[in-house]
């Protein structure tokens, strides 16, 4: 179980913790702990992550059944979020069935190009649309870099 995978999973999953909190599946204290961990690159054990982000793990396990990948590997996590996550949304899997289109749009993980860096956010271009996204999880991106975006957060720089 690589620590790199744990950190990467938290980066990709954290953006939806706001919704998890609003739905009452975690408390404010748990949310604050996740936020602190993602900001400071602190490890949160797999057991806790699997409990809080149970639907994401269920989907990663489904994907790994198809691909034969180890679910506790960083590349598996990245492959899930970049290649499979949106397919689950499109198929209205699990609670996506009850989510409004505008929310499902924000839940998608998109590849975005940074067109401006401001003091409190990046401005990214997704398709033809501009969106401000938080720098909190991915601090050192520059104009022209490609990043993955989940909800209102830039998650990691893409090659």
């Amino acid at each position: 179980m690589s620590q790199q995978a744990q950190l990467l999973f938290l980066k990709y999953a954290f953006p939806c913790a706001g919704i998890t909190l609003a739905r009452g599946h975690i408390c404010q204290k748990e949310y604050d702990k996740l936020e602190r961990a993602v900001k400071k690159n602190q490890l949160i054990d797999w057991q806790t992550l699997q409990k809080i982000f149970a639907p994401a793990f269920r989907r990663i396990k489904k994907m790994s059944c198809l691909t034969g990948q180890n679910i506790f590997d960083a590349q598996t996590i990245r492959d899930y979020y970049l290649k499979y996550h949106n397919k689950f949304i499109d198929e209205n899997e699990g609670s996506y069935k009850y989510a409004p289109p505008a929310l499902k749009q924000l839940c998608r993980v998109e590849r975005a190009k940074i067109i401006d860096v401001q003091s409190d956010c990046y401005i990214v271009k997704i398709g033809q649309k501009l969106r401000p996204v938080s720098k909190m999880i991915c601090l050192n991106a520059k104009v022209g870099d490609w990043v993955s975006v989940h909800y209102g957060y830039a998650v990691e720089k893409l090659k």
């Binding site: 919704i19 409004p100 505008a102 996204v133």
Partner: peptide
């Protein structure tokens, strides 16, 4: 709209607001 960290990040069509609130409940 949806606000995150003091920024307006997205518009929510009025027709979807009720569905959104229901989803959260």
């Amino acid at each position: 709209v949806i606000v995150q960290a003091g920024l307006v990040i997205e518009k929510v069509p009025k027709k979807q607001v009720e569905m959104w609130n229901k989803f959260i409940q």
